[in-house]
Write a protein that binds this DNA or RNA. Structure first.
Lengths: 242, 242
DNA sequence: CAGTGGTCTAGACCACGAC
DNA sequence: TCGTGGTCTAGACCACTGT
């Protein structure tokens, strides 16, 4: 039965199991553009051959990437690099009940300074230069949620409203197409807040209306925090599901 | 290498993979009290021998139960039936920042009629008889959250305040000790709401304060809905994490 | 040291989808 | 019919824990 676990992969990583190393190498290959979004990866046996491991080990590595939404599998067909979904649309799918006919609109994209919360989440010092992006989500024309996002102004130097609108206000598509960065959202934080004057005006509700704040950090595949955002959503009709 | 997958388990279930059948049989054994909470299961190899499958198949079945929080594993020691944690305490661990010195208090336990939401979640008709339980969670003495729970009055006939207090206001412990029911919480729904007069009084805040409502249904291991509850929590200091 | 979970392999068969 | 993912096995070695 062979002597198993030969530690032969000669990876730089010290104490990562083989299937973890397989995961890292697949991530690296995706980052280097070896397979585009929507494209099929080689079969599990081909990958096993390439990485000098068994098919079961490749499978366990793929499992974790499928669980993280980086890959999708279709039995009998293959394993595919997941399409970059709308960053705002996926949140709407988490609402109970049918949320159809959604659209986004860019309200603002301007340089500013980090609030404490955003700066902490992005690992930047307080007061660091940020680009702040405000979007409004409508459902069947009715205002539904405001999304505030922030990214490092240094890293995303050329970013402006035009580029965001070209990508249909989908920030993930902007990061990927303009900056070659593939991100995945981290686990969200929740908070209840009062709308306040500005949000109330945008959402055509009252200032004392309660809003659900869903805060997330989108991370590069290597774990580096890229984008902080808070979606402030009305939950008077539907609730938010995880 | 043997001929693999001999379909020899003679289980009543038709199209469930072997590891899924292993999971079901372990769940059944726990429900029948073969192993108590905190007790160690037999080793993976012993279970493999008992179920006539390989250790890897047992492991995959255990994996899913560990993921669901039914079992816990300690390397080099064994696999254990998870303790029935506090139903309210586990929620506090989800708050960002240190939430220490928490305590619960039973405010009410009375028969009533189901609100639409609770009845729907429990699969009961609107207006069915329920027992409604109200608890208050304090952190370092300061009111922090109100928990409203509801269960079928028929199924939990003898339930009263005394029995709940005997279990330190931990409902999961009540279901297990008094009714032999082990439950696991489903994925929560979130909503933002205004405190209102009653909750504001209990939480010593203002009626227009925003609260985060975390709604869950606790299900028996066979998937039957048992307990509906909503935890209404202040998020002015900490946020809720998933 | 013995026993447990954690990982890995080589090989096998099945179910599904496309051709 | 062929290639893919999905499942399963028997056996092996490693890492950790408690004695």
């Amino acid at each position: 039965m062979a002597q198993a676990a030969s530690r032969s992969m000669s990876m730089p990583l010290g104490r990562l199991p083989l299937y973890g190393q397989v995961r890292e190498r697949i991530v690296a290959a995706i980052e280097q553009g070896e397979w585009e979004a929507g494209e099929a990866l080689p079969s599990e046996f081909e990958l096993a051959d390439r990485f000098r491991v068994s098919q079961g080990t490749v499978r366990k590595g793929l499992d974790s990437l499928v669980a993280d939404g980086v890959l999708t599998r279709r039995q009998g067909v293959g394993t595919f690099v997941a399409e970059t979904g709308d960053d705002w649309g996926s949140a709407l799918l988490r609402m109970t009940g049918p949320v159809l006919g959604a659209s986004v609109e860019l309200l603002a994209c301007a340089r500013g300074h980090a609030g404490e919360e955003a700066a902490d989440a992005l690992g930047m010092r307080h007061g660091a230069a940020l680009i702040q992006i405000t979007r409004l989500v409508r459902v069947e024309g009715a205002p539904f949620a405001v999304i505030e996002s922030a990214v490092s102004a240094d890293r995303f130097d050329g970013l402006d409203a035009r580029r965001i609108k070209q990508a249909n206000c989908n920030l993930r598509a902007v990061w990927l197409r303009e900056f070659g960065l593939r991100v995945t959202p981290s686990a969200p934080l929740f908070r209840a807040s009062l709308a306040g004057r500005d949000a109330a005006r945008l959402l055509s509700t009252e200032a004392v209306s309660p809003l659900l704040d869903v805060m997330t950090v989108a991370e590069a595949l290597n774990g580096e925090p890229i984008e902080w955002s808070v979606m402030r959503v009305r939950t008077d009709i539907f609730a938010y599901r995880v």
